[in-house]
Write a protein that binds this DNA or RNA. Sequence first.
DNA 1: AAGATTGTTGCTTA
DNA 2: TTAAGCAACAATCT
Length: 304
Amino acid sequence: MPELPEVETIKNDLAKVVLNKKISKIIVNDKKIIKSSINYFAGILKNNSFKEINRAGKLLIFQMSDKKNYLIIHLKMTGQLIYLPRYDYQVIKGKGMEGLVAGGHSLDKEAKIPGIGDKLPNKYTRVIFEFKDEARLFFNDLRKFGYLKVVGGNELKKIVSEFGPEPLSIDFKINEFRDILVNKKTSIKALLLNQKIIAGIGNIYADEILFKAGIKPGRKVNSLKMKEIESIFKSIKTVLKKAIKYRGTTFSNFVDTRGRRGEFIKKLKVYKREGEKCLRCRDGVITKIKIAGRGTRFCKSCQT
DNA sequence: AAGATTGTTGCTTA
DNA sequence: TTAAGCAACAATCT
């Protein structure tokens, strides 16, 4: 479930290790994952390198050094990008056991999360990038909703233009948020999940943001008072920033580029806490209902 | 063992 | 016309 904070964490980590390194080989284990023709995809990327990495909402954008092309990667629900430098793996060969094993310190052997503590590639590895220095980048995806695609500048522009404002941009101010909400008849939860309206918020952070703001997720947007809009706006900024600080949330599948969990799971106030006591009012119990087709958690007594 | 899970698309309904 | 709602997608877990 990578949302903005998880994708931001991956982006920042990868930018420290893969930029300007020549890509020597591309291995595609599952063609369905690549939304370009395989020959085109591999042809553009091979012997190329990543010049810089950006993020639009939950989408990763790798600008190529050829200055013409971009690799875009969407992790959807169970995608992972795991990076192993040469010094951190041993190559195992023979008896169908070919693969790489992390050197020990970085991958969590106790974890029951695919991608953590596993041999790589594992059964969910769909694409592998090999760099000239023998480091490897693995794209794993259990459910195969994620994708990779090579696009040019014009197509990228079009894709990025579909996204609503970046919530953590300093240019995203209360007035713009207020204007976005005008005349909307949907629930505030559905609105926060809509990438065309605001980019990067998913199910976990939508619930956490509305808890912090003290607003019921089912509230119709056009019923919100200015004070409530301000409260939601502030909560968007603080919750997302804090989640980035804690390197995201690992509930089921998310790991960072070194196979580590995100620690924001310890800070969750409502997500997956249904039936438990509210951490704020200590009166209410966290309730779970369905809004916008999604499991939605909130405190009945202190969210109004 | 059916239903839930989750991000996004594209179709249907209002 | 526009917006809102929802099934579908894949694989696994409960």
